[in-house]
Design a protein around this nucleic acid. Sequence first.
DNA 1: TCAATTCATAACTTTATGGTTATGGATTTG
DNA 2: CAAATCCATAACCATAAAGTTATGAATTGA
Lengths: 114, 114
Amino acid sequence: MDSHPSHGDRSAACDELFKALSDGTRRALLEYLVRQGEQSVHALTAISAVSQPMVSRHLAKLKRARLVTARRAGRETYYSARVKGLAPVVQWMAIYGALWSQRFTALEELADPA
Amino acid sequence: MDSHPSHGDRSAACDELFKALSDGTRRALLEYLVRQGEQSVHALTAISAVSQPMVSRHLAKLKRARLVTARRAGRETYYSARVKGLAPVVQWMAIYGALWSQRFTALEELADPA
DNA sequence: TCAATTCATAACTTTATGGTTATGGATTTG
DNA sequence: CAAATCCATAACCATAAAGTTATGAATTGA
């Protein structure tokens, strides 16, 4: 089943990525991090419609999908968007025909900069 | 909450798209359709690891996300991949900074060929 | 006509997911 | 030190989702 060993388990990565992105609250968190840069959980809770524990759990899911990174500073945890994390998704989209894959080629280098 | 009215309900579209893509079986079906072209449910069941009813339900979900189209011919239903269906996802990804959005610009025209 | 094929839907089970409130650890601050 | 702040986790609930088998409608073919 592993048609390209060097890619590792890309399918599993896509599963986690797509699942992580399939929730509007998580996408909103990610968008905010992309636009505003590193933010504390407190700040992210303030702009979210859900409770702080839920924000923490959403962030944990984004982190497991490698779409954000966390940095602890004292009692605060600062999260940042990890742009490269989308790469497996972009690579997967390359199945969508030549037109698309041509344009995606440059992006694939981000993930596989060999 | 509607920061850009002309986009319609893009967020809901992304929700359905990402959810549709978050399942490996569905992605496999889609990949097969992209590579092999129009296929009957029977043929798609043959290449899937799950039962025929499950294949039908996965296809229904892909159809609701507008990632496939269905054509009934006698007792068979032929499904086809709908390439443009990914457009909202691609557009959403444009939030990922200038580097990415530059390259996505051309793709966005696919969805909004005004 | 009768049997077989193709597909979708119903009914059901199990597990995953999004949400809540409550709690407790770690760190600042008064 | 005590109180307040920040965060993560636990416990719980409700719903969604993936899977199964059973069934039935529609079409094809003998």
